[in-house]
Amino acid sequence: MSLLPKLTALAVASVLLTACGGTTKDDAKTEAPAAGGGASANPNAPLKSGLKIAFLPKQINNPYFTIANKGGADAVKAFKGESKEVGPSDASASSQVSYINTLTQQKQDVIVISANDSNAVVPALKNARNAGIKVVTYDSDAAVAGRDVFINQASAEDIGRTEVQLLAKQIGNKGKIAVLSATPNATNQNTWIEFMKDELKKPEYKDMELVKVAYGNDDDQKSFTETQGLLKSYPDLKGIISPTTVGIAAAARYLSGSPHKGKVALTGLGTPNQMRKFVKDGTVKEFELWNPADLGYLAAYAGGALASGQITGKEGETFEAGKLGKKTVGKDGVVILGPPTVFNTGNIDQFDF
């Protein structure tokens, strides 16, 4: 897989992307201990070799996570560790728990997980941490109590607001719009959607109305059906935002073969390879995404730094992340990859992932 050098390493809170609830993020923060558990970091400690790092995506055989975890595996190989990928075939709230328990029994050094539900996985992740396993979340966060650091694609606010801005430009800041999300409990998706709603409160969007948030559950056929349902329920719909790679591809496939092609704008988060034909046939004008391979790569290096004692997850700590350079741990143990890239007919052929 060749990646254009100018593609920035990164995010949007999510983020997509595919996505994946009882307490809110703020609730989770207040109940969580400080990241790092009081341990002291030694930034000069060598990166250990032979580390066992397991990747647990929201679901296996999802193109987005296949790319992300390949990037992670490349990083683990670079620092002479061992990697594996396990996970459910569906993105339900509790589907990852049994995998976490098995990885804990296998005594992995690091679990890298994209949480389907920010709270459902926490008890199992706490058990893993109590057993000495470091936990890195990527793409979609868990409650702070369940992990050491979160690798965020980009800032959640940037993603949520830019999604609205991209769509508004295409529909002249006027008309009814809908969101086609992943699952109702997806942490990153829900955070992005809150920022979308806040962005829509600005005066320049007074003629835009969010009429529906639909959920395709990161399933291709359900996302396709939900898109069809949106157009039936709102025949005057002007645009759809789908901040999930599965959702945007399914929505584009429906629109491309319908009378709504060219009349209903679609944007969101997708990979260039899956969206190229829809951009070229005029179904989609612009969409955005970060480099998922870099997301997995950074998550692996963060896990290696944690397991080697270079960082504990406390704000202000730094670590080297191979080709991505030095990264800094922010508030609540968040490490941001970087800003997403906007893809359109002018640049999409420059990317291959």
Score class of each variant (00 low, 15 high):
A145W: 02
A145Q: 12
R147W: 13
D148V: 01
V149W: 02
V149E: 00
F150R: 05
F150H: 12
I151G: 05
A154L: 10
E157T: 15
D158M: 14
D158K: 15
I159C: 07
I159E: 14
R161I: 13
R161G: 07
T162L: 08
E163G: 08
V164Q: 04
V164S: 01
V164M: 07
Q165L: 08
L166P: 04
L166Q: 09
L167E: 01
A168D: 09
A168S: 10
A168E: 04
Q170C: 01
Q170R: 01
Q170F: 02
G172S: 00
G172D: 02
N173Y: 15
N173F: 14
K174G: 00
K174P: 00
G175A: 02
K176L: 01
I177Y: 09
A178Y: 03
V179I: 13
V179F: 07
L180T: 10
S181E: 09
S181T: 06
T183A: 02
P184C: 03
P184W: 11
A186W: 07
A186L: 03
T187Q: 12
N188I: 02
N188K: 05
Q189N: 13
N190I: 11
N190E: 05
T191K: 13
E194D: 14
M196F: 05
M196D: 05
K197E: 11
K197W: 03
K197Y: 02
D198K: 10
L200K: 09
L200S: 04
K201A: 13
K202G: 01
E204D: 10
E204Y: 02
E204Q: 14
Y205H: 15
K206R: 13
M208Q: 07
M208P: 13
E209M: 12
L210T: 08
V211Y: 13
K212Y: 12
K212G: 09
K212W: 14
V213H: 06
V213A: 07
V213K: 03
V213G: 11
A214S: 11
A214D: 05
A214G: 02
Y215F: 15
Y215W: 15
G216E: 06
N217S: 10
D218Q: 06
D220C: 08
D220T: 14
Q221N: 13
K222Q: 13
S223N: 10
S223G: 11
F224W: 14
F224E: 10
T225H: 05
E226W: 12
T227V: 01
T227R: 00
T227M: 03
T227I: 02
Q228R: 08
G229F: 15
L231N: 10
S233H: 08
Y234R: 06
Y234G: 04
P235C: 07
P235H: 09
P235E: 06
L237P: 07
G239I: 07
I240Q: 02
I240A: 00
I240C: 02
I240Y: 00
I241R: 00
S242R: 03
S242L: 05
P243R: 03
P243V: 09
P243K: 02
P243L: 03
T244R: 03
V246K: 13
V246Y: 04
I248M: 05
A249Y: 03
